[in-house]
């Protein structure tokens, strides 16, 4: 009797270990077909490339889907519009963008406005000039702190 119980206990422990372990791993490994409807709706721009994304990228994208319903309508439009480009950026660029965004958020309103104006001006530069500027400036982040 006791032996049966002991066996059952350990079996149960192992079973739950496996279940929970696989559950935590699964989270970032879901295929497009496995997503919920609401997730798919938000991440729709990524449909064709979802299954090629790295697990941690998917995780980040799922975070976006999680926060999406909390946002205002116009913000939601922006998110959808920019999502494709975002997913195609390199990990370097994304990490760089995250840090810059943090800095941007901390700026006073007038500085923010100024930066927005500057960005528009910068967009008007010929692509060749922008490429030159990009090539001249050093990489801001090392490999260590990516994604």
């Amino acid at each position: 009797m006791d032996r049966i119980q002991l066996g059952l206990k350990s079996a149960l422990v192992i079973f739950f270990l496996l279940v929970t372990a696989s559950a935590t791993a699964d989270e970032s490994n879901v295929t497009w077909a496995q997503l919920t409807d609401s997730q798919r709706q938000v991440l729709n721009p990524l449909a064709s490339e979802w299954d090629t994304l790295r697990p941690w990228q998917r995780e980040k994208m799922l975070d976006i889907a999680r926060d999406y319903p909390k946002m205002s309508q116009e913000k939601q439009v922006l998110v959808k519009k920019r999502l494709t480009n975002w997913s195609r950026m390199t990990p370097y660029e994304r990490e760089n963008a995250r840090k810059r965004h943090q800095q941007f958020k901390a700026l006073p309103a007038d500085k923010k406005r100024e930066l927005r104006k500057k960005w528009q001006e910068y967009q008007k530069l010929p692509e060749s000039e922008r490429a030159k500027l990009r090539a001249e400036s050093p990489e801001a982040y090392g490999d260590s702190d990516l994604d």
């Binding site: 976006i64 480009n85 975002w86 995250r98 958020k105 910068y122 400036s137």
Partner: peptide, 23 residues
Amino acid sequence: SDAFLLASDLPPEAYADKGFDAW
């Protein structure tokens, strides 16, 4: 999450573009 970055005043390219910084 990155959702807030995507919805911010500037597009993500603006944050990532080091040419913009230099400029």
